[in-house]
């Protein structure tokens, strides 16, 4: 009996100690999207892909699209305009991406403004991460 309790405790500890995966941030966006729009029916990797590849050009002239710095292939490293390498966006290559909510929000805040000239909607953010999870 003791053994069982011990094992259960260890298993529970592991389960609880699991780092926040991209899905937890995605869950939050999902909840938020549902609150914002009751007819919301899930994020789409397809829409995320289109969003990622579109030449928006509604923000700052230097950064018309996500791909300006991140390249068309999310599994490849990007390059900042100042010449610094950016870790790939694809979860398969950069597993620790989309795990720190402060960081995710910081970069959506900055980059949506740079590229789109406005804040991104919850659906856009969710679609984006969903697409990156498939990459």
């Amino acid at each position: 009996m003791k053994k069982v309790i011990c094992l259960t405790a260890i298993a529970a500890a592991f389960a609880l100690a699991t780092p926040a995966y991209a899905s937890s941030i995605l869950d939050e966006y999902r909840n938020q999207a549902q609150q914002e729009n009751p007819s919301f029916n899930g994020f789409s990797a397809e829409r995320g892909k289109a969003f990622f590849l579109t030449q928006h050009a509604t923000g700052k002239a230097e950064t018309p699209a996500c791909t300006s710095c991140h390249t068309n292939d999310p599994t490849q490293s990007g390059l900042t305009r100042a010449g610094k390498s950016i870790a790939p966006l694809a979860v398969s290559v950069s597993p620790d991406r989309y795990t720190d909510q402060r960081k995710v929000e910081k970069w959506f805040r900055r980059n949506c403004n740079s590229v789109l000239g406005r804040a991104c909607t919850t659906i856009e953010k969710g679609d984006f991460i969903t697409f990156m999870q498939t990459q």
Binding site: T63, R81, K106, R109, N113
Partner: peptide, 12 residues
């Protein structure tokens, strides 16, 4: 910072 050489680099 919100227009930092062509990019938004704002901070909390």
């Amino acid at each position: 910072l919100s227009d930092h050489y062509g990019e938004d680099a704002s901070l909390d």
